[in-house]
Amino acid sequence: MEAEVKTTQGAIVSVENPEITAPADWQPVIIGILCNWCSYAGSDLTGTSRIQYPPNIRIIRVPCSSRVDPWFIIKSLQATADGVLISGCHPGDCHYISGNYYARRRFLVTKKLLNFVGYHENRVQFSWVSAAEGPKFAKVVAKVTEDIKKLGPLHRYKKENF
């Protein structure tokens, strides 16, 4: 399901709820939760290599992708973010042996469940980025930002929450 950015009268419209709009210069907020050993190190490498990517992502460091409880994702989407990116080590490379395999299962189910209750599937994305994949991290962030820009703003329940 390829989303297209929709606009009405110069405002960007949320794909999930046409009543929610944002000004044309709207920039999404994306929360990135990265594992310490591969993806966080990879994102550091992106920095040291001076590879440029969109500035929308805010990075949170966790030891392993398996530390990510699905409700972090739900909370992020409800509280502040228009999208979430979670990144860990490639299969087989997990610093903690098997963490990313457990995480992979939870992520798939969470992603599908969120989509089922009405979030576009591109709101929540996952990637494997190794410590050596600085360029890949930049690409992933660029793609995720691009995808989420097309989805428009997400503040379905925000107003009542805070």
Partner: peptide, 15 residues
Amino acid sequence: REHSSWVHQKDKKAA
């Protein structure tokens, strides 16, 4: 540094 100044060198405001 790694997550902002080095990767958003063209957009000081956003960085």
